[in-house]
Design a protein around this nucleic acid. Sequence first.
DNA 1: AAACGGATGGGCT
DNA 2: GCCCATCCGTTTG
Length: 210
Amino acid sequence: MPKRRTPALTPLPRSFYSQPTLLLSRELLGTYLVHESAQGRSVGRIVETEAYLHDDPACHAYRGITPRTRVLFGPPGFSYIYFIYGMYWCFNVTASPKGIGEAVLIRALEPIEGLALMKQRREVRGKTLKDRELCNGPGKLTIAMGIGPELNGVDLERKPLYLAAKDSFPRKNPGQEIEVTTRIGIRKAEHQPYRFSFKDNPFVSRSKGL
DNA sequence: AAACGGATGGGCT
DNA sequence: GCCCATCCGTTTG
């Protein structure tokens, strides 16, 4: 007796990632991040993003190509995963044409599928978390989704890590108004309105930002 | 509700 | 040696 059908998900094509980065940051809202790992499939709906542009001092690519930022200067639609504060990994989607280093940071997801697996991965000091605490931050969602450094630089057009279109699942939350605020946790170019989120969505990392 | 500090390690001047 | 696109528990108002 099937409890729930799992939809066949198709990765978004390269053309999706080829739009201007600020537009892409908006268009990413509502799409589904999918990781098909050995432990199982987990899916989250993107509800919060931040753009990092080539002329933007807060962008890792601002000072040019280094071993770390190499993937940022490649084609759009690849993963850029970096290590932060000695403990966490943050997941980005590369944007902009080859040779220009821009990206979109994925800051929060609404957990859609594989919640038991997410809770297992995110378990903090033996305590089980609420659904809204699983992916409401860039460092949290990589843990919940099982995304680590081994996935840095992979093509998001293919398994095991990819994005699927907004209509891949029945829409849950009403109210899809997009809110634009300043970015969180940065000290350079902190006034730029480069953060995008679904207004009043309970799964975003914070309700503030401006 | 907001502010604060500790954990913890790679990247780059 | 300083800076971090963070998180979590504790303290303070």
